[in-house]
Amino acid sequence: MALLEINDLHASVGEREILRGIDLTVNAGEVHAIMGPNGSGKSTLAGVLAGRELYHVTSGSVLYDGKDLLAMAPEDRAREGIFLAFQYPVEIPGVSNMYFLKAALNTIRKNKNLPELDAMDFLNLVREKMKLMEMEQALLNRPVNTGFSGGEKKRNEIFQMAVLEPKLAILDETDSGLDIDALRTVAGGVNALRSPERSMIVVTHYQRLLNYIVPDFVHVLSEGRIVKSGGKELALQLEESGYAGLGIVDEEEAVGKR
């Protein structure tokens, strides 16, 4: 059985339809890259899977581990193993990173019928994961994402993923705003988390990230539909010919050429 089965998914924001019939199947352990120009619906797809209220699913279905994903509250999706790495991680002043992550981990553990971790065990766990992400421990005591640099925020997302150990990780433009060193660190963290039990959906505009996180499958999204699917070589082809090579208008590139 597939881990995730998306069938003819349509979703809107207000009156505007953004996803216009997405079909996608992700099996355990697979890494799928979703590429596409701005406005193609990449982030909407990521948001719908995580349960963002802004998007309204108008038709279609999503089965996750055999269950109706769309009927689940965002927190229940997380407890069942879905993790969204945010394109723009949210700053939450007044809530310490440590407190937040411990609360999150223990809720997820409780759902798996595992005992809650005490402060000591939790600290040992996060120390190990912080090393992986080359993060300073001081960040743990700071409020969630507050005053973090762009790179620190993205590393913090992957660090959380490492601690929460999801079954399905959705990375929403995790590469945006990163310099090459930060990109390597983040990609290194993601690669260390690849396993036969963990699937990933990597949403990106640029092929660059896929040099570091090599996908099993690449899908190209345009105007709310997957217009082309292939292996990792599809990403390279896009790099050579651009979205225009597939007959897709990339608003950003089009603007650039003007």
Partner: peptide, 8 residues
């Protein structure tokens, strides 16, 4: 939403 997306 951020907190909920982490299981809280």
């Amino acid at each position: 939403f951020y907190l909920q997306s982490r299981g809280i």
